[in-house]
């Protein structure tokens, strides 16, 4: 197997709720290769968002480590972590999280500003990315002038701004209707193939299954099973059968 870009090893996470401690993650081991499209599936409360935050360096594990490019990210200081978030990882959220006071283009160029790229280059690249997600004509629009699907496209363009190795998508279709969600999924898939970006998405949207290389099923803080795509078609059949 080729070198892994993300390696999760023995990760646990405890949250303190009042006086009691709740173990949300109970020891997760996972290896993700370059350019893979991974879906982390599981019911809400299963710990998938927590795992997702760990991989993104947004939260620290209680024990165990997360390696990105073979670097243990819990060892990084604030500057290195900020750099990692800026250049190595692109984030996409369920709630889009487009900065409201900025136009689409300014949103896309913001990570490049942090990354130290000159204004002109950032602008040019930003327009390219907006073109890629089909919003070139709307670069001047503010978030409230865009639909949910369009905002998510801006978010995708923004996630790609610094050519990250990994894109983390937390329920990217959660706030979108069926067909818009599908468009977003295919856009992500196309990008992962074209740019060889690793895409890790936490979701419970079954549409995601079709495009994933592997699906990691999480339940109750543990990995229940990891399925490859060829095994998947059968499971989808089962799911659609049980639903009809």
């Amino acid at each position: 197997m080729e070198a892994s870009i993300v390696r999760v090893s023995g990760v646990t996470k405890n949250f303190t709720m009042g006086k009691s401690q709740i173990q949300v993650l109970k020891g997760i081991d996972l290896e993700i290769g370059m350019g893979e499209y991974i879906s982390i599936m599981g019911p809400s409360g299963s710990g998938k968002t927590t795992l997702f935050n760990m991989i993104g360096g947004l939260d620290k594990p209680s024990s165990g480590s997360v390696f990105i490019d073979e670097v243990d990210i819990s060892q990084l200081d604030a500057y290195e972590l900020a750099w990692l978030r800026c250049r190595k990882i692109g984030y996409i959220f369920q709630t889009f999280n487009i900065i409201q006071v900025m136009t689409a283009l300014e949103n896309v160029t913001l990570p490049m500003v942090f990354g130290g790229i000159s204004d002109d280059d950032a602008r040019e690249k930003g327009m390219e990315l907006l073109d890629l997600v089909g919003l070139k004509k709307r670069f001047q629009h503010k978030p409230f002038e865009l639909s949910g699907g369009q905002q998510q496209r801006v978010a995708i363009a923004r996630a790609l701004a610094n050519d990250p190795a990994i894109i983390l998508a937390d329920e990217p279709t959660g706030n979108l209707d069926l067909s818009t969600g599908e468009e977003i999924i295919f856009l992500l898939k196309m990008l992962s193939r074209e740019k060889n970006v690793t895409i890790i998405s936490a979701t419970h949207d079954l549409k995601m299954l079709n495009v994933s290389d592997r699906v990691v099923w999480i339940s109750d803080g543990r990995i229940e099973k990891i399925e490859n795509r060829d095994e998947l078609s059968i499971s989808i059949g089962q799911i659609s059968e049980t639903h009809t």
Binding site: G56, L58, A78, A82, W83, R85, R87, N97, I98, F114
Partner: peptide
């Protein structure tokens, strides 16, 4: 929070 995810320092 978003800005911090994009790499902003404190």
């Amino acid at each position: 929070g978003t800005m911090k995810c994009l790499g902003a320092l404190d």
